[in-house]
Design a protein around this nucleic acid. Structure first.
Lengths: 148, 148
DNA sequence: TATTGTTATACTCTATAACTATA
DNA sequence: TATAGTTATAGAGTATAACAATA
């Protein structure tokens, strides 16, 4: 946009999102690494935080990942004491996962890390622009059929 | 934002970008797959298109990937006839990569795919909002030290 | 000795498929 | 027979490290 001869591909939404996504993810991953979790763990906790205790199948569906992946994530979160796994008495095949108090604290710390990263990313943006950006990305997320 | 009790993590820029990025990338990858390329190939062509013929080291630096990765990408683009590799007579260690006419056509097709995806993603957005979103993401990309 | 490109190898992430137990 | 969870395996993508040619 600065250069009239700039390659138009870099001026597409798709390109910018495709480039910024991994970059932001990597920085977020680095920020929560000291907490012992990775972005996918945080995503799982966020889903649990949003609703009632869920089965691993439900988690997998909402997160758009395969159920076998949830196993490992839940294992590690359980080791950290962030979630509890209890068998559903009504259907003993199911595990009902829920956040513990420690898990809520951990999630809060991850949220703080995300907020700090947001502040860095939008350092050159006004408050108004920042709100607009967040809102428009929210629209896109819904459009794409995301739980966000 | 719709729900007052919504998990605040999903209301961060970091989270939304981290989720939307891979999703958009995957859709873009599907769109250019029939053309025989993947997003990274397109990225390489975009860099070449933006400037003068570049060495593989330069490409790697601009793309924020390791030089050994450029080797394979360039190999495949050369097989497609999209780029040319010529030894730099001034420094015979270097290869100078440049887009061919076929490469420019291929890149144009990828741009069209990106534009079509943009239209899908922003279907529920007004023209004004779409422009704003694109501009703000551009600011973020610069802030993050990206070539875009 | 330093640098470019290359090759060989390993690591991370995620998916697919096969298996166990419950239903 | 179907489903929840698990385990084992495989694939994609990318990085690290060793190497050859050139400077």
């Amino acid at each position: 946009m600065d250069d009239v001869n700039a390659n138009a591909l870099t001026d597409t939404l798709s390109f910018r999102l495709g480039v910024l996504g991994p970059l932001v993810s990597a920085r977020f991953a680095g920020a929560v690494e000291p907490l012992g979790v990775k972005p996918k763990h945080v995503g799982l906790m966020a889903v649990l935080s949003a609703g009632a205790p869920a089965s691993q199948q439900e988690l997998a569906r909402v997160m758009s990942v395969v159920p076998s992946l949830v196993v490992g994530l839940a294992d590690q979160l359980e080791e950290l004491g962030a979630i509890e796994r209890v068998r559903d008495p009504a259907d003993r095949r199911r595990h009902r996962l829920s956040l513990t108090d420690a898990g809520r604290e951990l999630l809060a710390a991850c949220l703080a890390a995300a907020a700090a990263l947001d502040a860095e990313l939008t350092a050159s943006l006004g408050v108004r622009d920042r709100e607009v950006l967040l809102r428009l990305l929210g629209v896109l997320a819904r459009e794409a059929g995301l739980p966000a």
